[in-house]
Design a protein around this nucleic acid. Structure first.
Lengths: 203, 203
DNA sequence: CTTAAAATCTGGACACTGTCTAGTTTATAA
DNA sequence: TTATAAACTAGACAGTGTCCAGATTTTAAG
C-alpha cells in the first residue's frame, strides 16, 4: 500500500495532518508550507494543487480545529439537556481544556493568523455553528433563570468572551506567575462563571 | 540637522518608531527588520547593534504600547479617585479604545507574537504595573461594594479577561457581522461590565 | 592631545521562506 | 483510444532573519 506513487491519493488531508503535527511540535513560527510538504513526502510546490496559498492551509487547519471543538462541546453538553446550568459549566470547561490541550491550534484559530476568514466558507460555517451552540445554551440558561434576561447573542458573546479572555491571556503569557501559582485554571474559570450566573455558586 | 552622518544618533528609538509605523500601515505580517531599517535610513543589519533579534524589537514595541496604555489608563481613571465604579467604567473604556485605535500594537502586545516575554525585564515590569493598576481599581470597587468580595487579583483577572476576550474576538474577526451590526462595541462593553457589577446598571 | 578600545554601521553572504512558471506524470472521461 | 484535466516535480525569484568581516565614529585612558 505505501508504494510511492506519483499521485498521493489523499494529499490534501495528509497536508492538513502534517500541518497540525508540525504546529503542535514547533508552534506557529515553525509552520511552513515546505516543511508540511516534506513531511507529507511531496515536493515543495505540491501543496499548491490543493491550497491556493499558506493562508488557505491555515484556514483548513483552523476549520479542523473548530470541528473538533464542536464535537467535544456537543459530547460534553448533550447529556445535560435538562440542566442548563450544568451545560454552561461543562461547555465552559471543554472550551478551556481544548485551549490547553491544543495550544497552537487554538492559537491559529483565534489569534488573527488567518487574515481573511470571510474567504473560507467552511471556516465561517463551523465557526457560526459553534457560536450558535453557545447561544442555545445561554438561551436555556436564561429560560431557567440561571442567566439574566437579555438578547441571547450578546449574553453569549459575553460568556464566550469571558472564558476566551482569561484563557488567552494565560496562554499568551500575559498573566504573571504570581497569579498562576496561586489559583488553578479551573478555579479561575469557576470564579468567572460565577460572576455570570445569578444565584448560588457553581460547584 | 538631518545631515546623513555615519552614526544615526538615536537609531534605537528611530527603529522602534519605524516599527510602529509599519505595523499600523501593513500589519504584523508586513513588519520586517529590513523594512524597519530602510525606513530609518540605515543598512539592513544596523538594527543588530541595538536589538539582538527581531523578537527583541517586538518586545520594545510592545513595551512602548504598554507604556502608552498605562498613561491613558492613568489619565482617565485618576480624576475619579472617589468614585470606584466610574473608575472601572472609564478604565474599561480606555482599554477598549486603545485596542481599537492601536489594533496592531495591541495585537503584538497580546497575541503571542512575543514568545519569551520573561526575557524582557522592561516588558515584564510595565506589564505588571498595568495589572497592578487594575487590581487597585478592583480593590476600591470591592471596598465600595461595587464588586463582590474576593481576592482582588482573581477578580482583576476576571474583569480584564472579560474585556480582553470580547475585544480580541472582535478584532481578530471571530465575531459575526450579525452581532456587530446589531450592537455597538460600547453596548457590548457596558453589558459585560454590568454582568460584573453588583447592583444598579452602569450608565 | 594621542591613541587604544568600544560602539555603531555597511555590505556581503547563507539558509529558509512563499509563490510562480514550465513541464511531467497520472487519472478521468468522451 | 485519446484528449482533457488533475496532481505533482523542479527550478527560479524576491524577501526574510541572522551572521560575519570590515569600515567609521565615538569614548575614554594615558
Amino acid at each position: 500500500m505505501p508504494s510511492p506513487k506519483y499521485h498521493h491519493g489523499d494529499l490534501k488531508n495528509a497536508l492538513i495532518e502534517a500541518g497540525i503535527k508540525i504546529l503542535s511540535k514547533e508552534g506557529v513560527g515553525g509552520l511552513s508550507l515546505r516543511k508540511v510538504a516534506k513531511r507529507a513526502g511531496v515536493s515543495h510546490s505540491a501543496p499548491y494543487a490543493h491550497f491556493t496559498d499558506k493562508q488557505s492551509l491555515i484556514a483548513a487547519i483552523s476549520t479542523e480545529g473548530f470541528k473538533q471543538l464542536y464535537a467535544e462541546l456537543d459530547a460534553a453538553v448533550s447529556p445535560y439537556a435538562s440542566d442548563p446550568k450544568q451545560q454552561l459549566l461543562e461547555g465552559a470547561w471543554v472550551y478551556v481544556q481544548f485551549a490547553l490541550n491544543n495550544r497552537d491550534t487554538f492559537h491559529i484559530m483565534f489569534s488573527g493568523i488567518l487574515e481573511k476568514e470571510k474567504d473560507y466558507p467552511a471556516f465561517v460555517e463551523i465557526s457560526r455553528k459553534n457560536f450558535e451552540r453557545v447561544v442555545d445554551i445561554v438561551r436555556a440558561c436564561q429560560d431557567a433563570g440561571v442567566l439574566r434576561p437579555a438578547p441571547p447573542e450578546i449574553m453569549a458573546l459575553t460568556v464566550w468572551g469571558q472564558l476566551h479572555g482569561i484563557i488567552s491571556l494565560i496562554l499568551e503569557g500575559n498573566v504573571s506567575h504570581v497569579i498562576l501559582d496561586r489559583f488553578s485554571i479551573r478555579e479561575m474559570m469557576l470564579f468567572a462563571m460565577n460572576q455570570m450566573v445569578l444565584g448560588k455558586p457553581l460547584s
